[in-house]
């Protein structure tokens, strides 16, 4: 499944490294990244492919959410389809 990992929170060193590292551990491939600082907030979305990931989607969401809590940002993973469906005609 193609999914969007979104990361929002206070900017700090190593966010991309920690998130990419965790995705690598989970067997999730990163296909595209878009990142910016909005009003001092770190904002990033990653387009990923979960095909080779052995964990269930809900478990992956929990692992990423826990990592977010650890580093003080909010991390979610959601199917790309929901954004395409909502925002693109």
């Amino acid at each position: 499944m193609r999914a969007i990992v979104s990361v929002f929170g206070t900017d700090q060193k190593g966010i991309i490294a920690k998130v990419s590292g965790k995705l690598y551990e989970l067997g999730i491939n990163v296909e595209d990244i878009s990142q910016t600082i909005m009003q001092k907030y770190f904002s990033m979305i990653m387009l990923v492919d979960t095909t080779d990931c052995v964990k269930k989607f809900a478990e992956v969401a929990d692992v990423l959410s826990d990592l977010g809590k650890e580093i003080g940002v909010e991390i979610r993973i959601q199917t790309e389809d929901i954004f395409r469906t909502m925002h693109r005609i």
Binding site: I4, S6, F8, S34, M38, I45, F83, H87
Partner: peptide, 12 residues
């Protein structure tokens, strides 16, 4: 690719 603002809008 989906934009950051689209993701933010949905989640908000």
């Amino acid at each position: 690719m989906i934009s950051i603002n689209e993701v933010l809008e949905t989640n908000r």
